[in-house]
Design a protein around this nucleic acid. Structure first.
Length: 420
RNA sequence: GGUGGAGUGGCUGAGUGGUUGAAAGCGGCGGUCUUGAAAACCGUUGUACCUGUGAGGGUACCGUGGGUUCAAAUCCUACCUCCACCGCCA
C-alpha cells in the first residue's frame, strides 16, 4: 500500500509513476475521499468530545440531585449524529481502502521507464553450449527416460499438472536440498510454512484484492492455496514490531506454488514450463529501509550462486516499469537458456517492495528513537523447480539420450552421475 | 465435532455501567547515591488517527464484529483464538 501522504503531497508524481507501470492509480478519487474522510472525522470527534464532557458531568449532577433528563434528550440527539457520521465514515473508508489496496507500488527511480523492450540486460554468466546433436525438449527426453509424466498429471488432476517419477522426482528433491543447504549456509533461516493461508495474509503481501482470479480459493473455509512461498513466509511478521537489532531477517523456504494461470491456456504451455502447481525455494528478506536496495543486489547474487553451482548459463535483466508487477518497486529477472525451446526462460524474479507490503501487513521496527517505522521487504526465487528441472534435462543432455547429473547434486542422489 | 473455562498495556495481573488509557508488580528508559556496579530511592514508560507552523488540543483502541444505553473494558449477541476433558485421527 502506498502512503496516503505521498499521494496528498505529490499527486502528479504518483500519477506519472503508476502510468509508467501501465496501472494508473486513481489519484483524484483517492484525494476526494481522503478530504471527505478527514472532514467527517473532525466533525465526529468534536461531537464525541462534547459527549465525553457531558458524560463526566452527569454523575456530579446526579449526586447534587439536579435533573438530568434534559441532558439525556440532547445527548441522544448527539449520539444519533455520531452514529450517522460514523456510518458515512465507514462507507468512505471502505471505498478509500479499496482504492488504496488496488493501487500499485511505484517504481524506484533506478528502474528504466518503458515496456518490456526497455528491460536492461545487466550481465550474462557462462557459455551457452552448442551441442553437435539436436537437444530434445524436456517433455520428450523426460517421457523417454520415464522421469516426467505429463499425461499422468492430466489424468489425475487436469491440464497443467504433471508427475515426476523415479530419478526425476529424486532430482527435484536433490535440488531442493541443495538450494536450502546453500542458502542455509549463507545465513538464511529455513522455514516450513503452511501452504494454505487466510485472506489477511494474501492482502498483506499484495495478492488480494487484485489477483483474486489467479489463485485457488477454498470457499468452504475461505482459505487460499499459496501462489508462492513469499506469502506465508513474509506474513510470519504481520502485525509485529521487530527490534532494529533483529534486522535484516533472512528466510528461505521450500513450498509448492499453486496458480490458476487463468487466460494463459495455449501460451507456450508445453511441458513443465507453465503449470498450475510447481515447487519452488523462495528467499525472503525483512530489512531496515536504508539497506533495502543493497539487499536486493545480495539477493540476486544469492540466486545466481545456485545457477553457478549448477553450472547453467544465465543472464540477469533489470525490468522496466511496464514489466514490473503490482507490488514491486524494482525487480531483477534471472533467465536461463532453454536449448529445447530455443529461448530464454525466467527462472527467478528478485524484487524489493519498499514499505508497500509492510504497510499492508503492519510490520514495523523501532528506530533509534524507539518509534515504530515500517520495515522494507524483499523476496526472490531461489529457484523455481519447474523451470530448473527442464533446464537440467536440456543443458545436461547427452547425445545418447542420457542426462548427466550436475556435480553438486550427485551426493544428494546417492552418487548417481547419469540418468538413463 | 462435543462440553467446560479463558482472552485487559512488553510480561504477570486488578477492574461495582459514569475523570479508567486503564490499579499494582515485573521489565525498559532517565536520574540520585557509588571509584565502578549492584541494591535502594525518585521520575518516566502504548499505538493509530484528526487538528495546529509549533507548543498543544481532540478522538479511538481492554480478542474481532454487531447491539443495548445519555454513557460500555464492564451488560447482550455472533464469531475468532487459546486452555482442559471427551470423540476422531496421520
Amino acid at each position: 500500500m502506498l502512503d496516503i501522504r505521498v499521494i496528498r503531497e505529490n499527486p502528479d508524481l504518483v500519477k506519472q509513476a503508476s502510468a509508467n507501470k501501465g496501472d494508473p492509480v486513481e489519484v483524484d478519487a483517492i484525494l476526494e475521499l481522503d478530504t471527505k474522510r478527514r472532514e467527517l472525522i473532525s466533525k465526529a470527534d468534536e461531537l464525541k468530545s462534547e459527549r465525553n464532557a457531558v458524560s463526566a458531568e452527569i454523575p456530579k449532577r446526579k449526586k447534587a440531585g439536579e435533573p438530568v433528563e434534559d441532558i439525556f434528550k440532547r445527548m441522544r440527539e448527539v449520539g444519533e449524529s455520531i452514529t450517522e457520521l460514523d456510518d458515512t465514515l465507514r462507507e468512505i473508508d471502505e471505498k478509500l481502502s479499496d482504492l488504496m489496496l488496488k493501487a500499485p507500488n511505484i517504481p524506484h527511480e533506478s528502474v528504466p521507464v518503458g515496456d518490456e523492450s526497455a528491460n536492461q540486460q545487466i550481465r550474462e554468466w557462462g557459455e551457452i553450449a552448442k551441442p553437435e546433436f539436436a537437444v530434445k525438449p524436456h517433455w520428450e527426453i523426460g517421457e523417454q527416460l520415464d522421469i516426467l509424466d505429463m499425461a499422468a498429471g492430466v489424468k489425475i488432476s487436469g491440464s497443467g499438472f504433471y508427475a515426476l517419477k523415479g530419478a526425476g522426482a529424486r532430482l527435484q528433491r536433490a535440488l531442493i536440498s541443495y538450494m536450502l543447504d546453500t542458502h542455509g549456509a549463507d545465513g538464511f533461516t529455513e522455514i516450513a510454512p503452511p501452504f494454505v493461508v487466510n485472506s489477511a495474509s494474501m492482502q498483506g503481501t499484495g495478492q488480494l484484492p487484485k489477483l483474486r482470479d489467479d489463485m485457488y480459493h477454498i470457499a468452504k473455509d475461505d482459505l487460499w492455496l499459496i501462489p508462492t512461498g513469499e506469502v506465508p513466509v513474509t506474513n510470519l511478521h504481520r502485525e509485529e514490531i521487530l527490534s532494529a537489532e533483529s534486522l535484516p531477517i533472512s528466510y528461505c523456504s521450500y513450498t509448492p506454488c499453486f496458480r490458476r494461470e487463468a487466460g494463459a491456456a495455449g501460451k507456450d504451455t508445453r511441458g513443465m514450463i507453465r503449470v498450475h502447481q510447481f515447487d519452488k525455494v523462495e528467499m525472503v528478506k525483512i530489512v531496515h529501509p536504508d539497506t533495502a536496495y543493497a539487499e536486493l543486489e545480495t539477493l540476486v547474487a544469492q540466486a545466481e550462486k545456485i545457477l553457478q553451482g549448477l553450472e547453467i548459463p544465465y543472464r540477469v535483466l533489470l525490468l522496466a516499469t511496464g514489466d514490473l508487477s503490482f507490488a514491486y518497486s524494482k525487480t531483477y529477472d534471472i533467465e536461463l537458456w532453454s536449448a529445447g525451446v530455443a529461448s530464454w526462460l525466467e527462472i527467478s524474479s528478485i524484487s524489493v517492495f519498499g514499505d508497500f507490503q509492510a504497510r499492508r501487513m503492519n510490520t514495523r521496527y523501532r528506530d533509534d528513537k524507539g518509534k515504530p517505522k515500517f520495515v522494507h521487504t524483499l523476496n526472490g526465487s531461489g529457484l523455481a523447480l519447474a523451470r530448473l528441472i527442464p533446464a537440467i534435462m536440456e543443458n545436461y543432455q547427452n547425445a545418447d539420450g542420457t542426462i548427466t547429473v550436475p556435480k553438486v547434486l550427485q551426493s544428494y542422489m546417492g552418487g548417481l552421475t547419469k540418468i538413463g
